[in-house]
């Protein structure tokens, strides 16, 4: 089963005003469990809106968001009849069952943001505590965990994102931009979400910072088996780190599938206003000039491998002809 399933989602900003704007238009999409899915699209294609739907921050104008098959925006009336049949409620009187179900639903809603961790764009702007430690501990503390557990999680998340233990007692405002970003990421990872959603996690970072953030996220996915969604408009990063790719265009899903499959339609993608990786463009240009290089080249490593193979082939060919 898909971990997340968006069903006929429609989202409209400022409905019924002259500023009305459709951000998502009848989007249906399943996100595979335990995979890294990249969501790419041009500015204003609805990427960030989609992220906010996943943990209940925004409610769709129409349609359902299913997490493990359960509509996260279910109201009491939606679930009552179905839940009443469940064993744990069947024995209770109607009134007691109602109360139980209401409580259960409220608890589900409260814990939703801990299950689906959302790292917003430029998350360093959300730092507010006196020390880095306290800031990372904000999420776990809101979960209602014990002090020891919080401590363990904060230390683990800080170590995982490569934050020095000495930094934990400093003010987050004294850190560099890249470090702040890592603190913000650690603040979400410390909640150990089963779905991790990142909105442009590497925006504004230098190449080393980008690599660091993406690699940490991949490690988190591998260690915990969680589901990860990454919004980005860098196809190169997507190609390097993602299993699946979703392409959004004008509030609709243009393509969805495994990375290689989607990227093989690269010429169609260029119409969406996305940046095709430089090496891919190079490969395409070489092909145009008659060099028999594969067109599925998205990263520098791919290109190195393909060109090496090509050169050794040529050498073999020459030797053979002699």
């Amino acid at each position: 089963m898909d971990k997340i399933y968006l069903e006929n989602i429609r989202y409209v900003y400022s409905p019924d005003t002259p500023f009305e704007q459709v951000a998502l238009d009848d989007v249906t999409l399943g996100i595979r469990k335990g995979c890294i899915t990249g969501i790419i699209g041009h500015t204003g294609s609805g990427k960030s809106t989609m992220m906010q739907l996943l943990n209940g921050l925004a409610k769709p104008t129409d349609g359902r968001v299913l997490l493990d098959g359960f509509d996260i925006n279910s109201t009491f009336d939606d679930v009552f009849d179905a839940w009443r049949e469940r064993e744990e409620y069947a024995k209770l009187s109607k009134r007691a069952a109602k109360k139980e179900i209401r409580g259960q639903l409220a608890e589900l809603r409260r814990t939703l943001c801990f299950r689906v961790g959302l790292v917003m764009q430029y998350p360093e702007y959300q730092l507010f505590e006196e020390t880095v430690y306290k800031d990372i501990a904000f999420g776990p503390a809101n979960m209602g965990l014990e002090e020891d557990e919080i401590r363990a999680r904060v230390l683990e998340a800080a170590a995982f994102t490569g934050l020095d233990e000495a930094l934990l007692d400093q003010s987050p405002f004294d850190l560099s931009g890249g470090q702040k970003r890592r603190v913000a990421l650690a603040g979400i990872l410390a909640m150990r979400p089963e779905v991790l959603v990142l909105d442009e996690p590497a925006a504004g970072l230098d190449p080393r910072g980008r690599k660091m953030i993406f690699e940490r996220v991949c490690d988190y996915q591998r260690n915990t088996g969680s589901t990860v969604l990454i919004v980005s408009h860098s196809m190169e990063d997507m190609a390097r780190y993602c299993d699946d790719v979703v392409v959004l265009k004008d509030a609709k899903v243009l393509m969805h599938g495994e990375m290689n499959e989607v990227f093989s339609h690269i010429s169609e993608l260029s119409d969406t206003g996305l940046d095709i990786p430089q090496v891919t463009r190079l490969a395409l240009a070489l092909r145009e000039r008659g060099v028999p290089i594969s067109e599925n080249i998205y990263t520098v490593e791919d290109a190195t491998k393909a060109l090496r193979a090509l050169f050794s082939q040529q050498k073999d060919g020459k030797e053979a002809s002699v």
Binding site: L57, Y125, G139, N142, I188
Partner: peptide
């Protein structure tokens, strides 16, 4: 807009 963004970010960390 900024307030809304920050509020959302803190809500995503369970702020109430």
């Amino acid at each position: 807009e900024e307030t809304e963004k920050i509020m959302n970010a803190q809500k995503a960390r369970g702020a109430n």
